[in-house]
Nucleic acid binder design. Sequence first.
DNA 1: GCAAATTTAGTGTACCTACATTTAATGTTG
DNA 2: CAACATTAAATGTAGGTACACTAAATTTGC
Lengths: 151, 151
Amino acid sequence: MRLEDEIKQPTFQSEAHKAYLNVVYTAGWLGQRQMAAFKPYGLTSPQFNVLRILRGQHPLPATVALLIERMLDKTSNASRIVDKLEEKKLVTRTVCPANRRAVDIRITEAGLRLLRQIDEDEHANPARGSLDRLTAAEQRQLNTLLDKIRA
Amino acid sequence: MRLEDEIKQPTFQSEAHKAYLNVVYTAGWLGQRQMAAFKPYGLTSPQFNVLRILRGQHPLPATVALLIERMLDKTSNASRIVDKLEEKKLVTRTVCPANRRAVDIRITEAGLRLLRQIDEDEHANPARGSLDRLTAAEQRQLNTLLDKIRA
DNA sequence: GCAAATTTAGTGTACCTACATTTAATGTTG
DNA sequence: CAACATTAAATGTAGGTACACTAAATTTGC
């Protein structure tokens, strides 16, 4: 759907301004769909993303610093997201023996089971599926353009 | 900068998945820059966006419903954003005489002055300027691709 | 070897989003 | 016109982001 119609704005100052609003609006649009998709599993998007990073490390632990490095949102508060996951018994936290400042965070069996269940549900992530509306060439083009914005 | 490097992930499941992450990551990247740019003026991004909508309506009032319709984030809580702007005397709220359920929201002179000041500062919005790294043709291409994602 | 700097997490506060619920005014309809 | 439904905004609560600050462990440098 055209951005003009979605935010009821018939014209924009410039194509650049429209592109700016379009990136921000589209990310929000995708984010809302992702949030709704994870809700049945009792997870938020940031919680899901942290769990995925931990699965990627498994069976090695991750530290808070490693999570931040790999998260989409660098300023998100990984500590508090891990708090929520720990309350739900999806991760464990233990002081790192080699460096007692750091904390070893590990995904639990329950966490792995939950991710497996989400993976198996084809409808679990309609947000990611939206990208299939683009051809492979268009997806590459989009990646190139976005990388260029952040040059 | 390449997404791979920004989130320290050497490969992705698919080009579609990478494109998905790229849209979300780039929007966050732009959002952080916008937020930092408005900070010196004591505004947050949603507050700025609401002020701009109100200036667009000026001297006519807007209702909360109209703000939501035009905001980038449809589920944001316009009422509470208007609360903050009202505290700062940048907008006024009066019960709409024609429909006493609705509230007429208007930008004040102080609000108009603040927006003028931000407009005049060329460095006020580095986020929007990032889009100038794309050529006009690329900006159009990006808009087309993003609109297609939300088809 | 010890004082100072740095690193690693965690905390406090303000603001925001997501979503359900509430309150009041207005429409609708038998 | 009274009962019910709908509309417009506000509120309550849980979780998240932005950013400054704190506390503890470790590293660095004299």
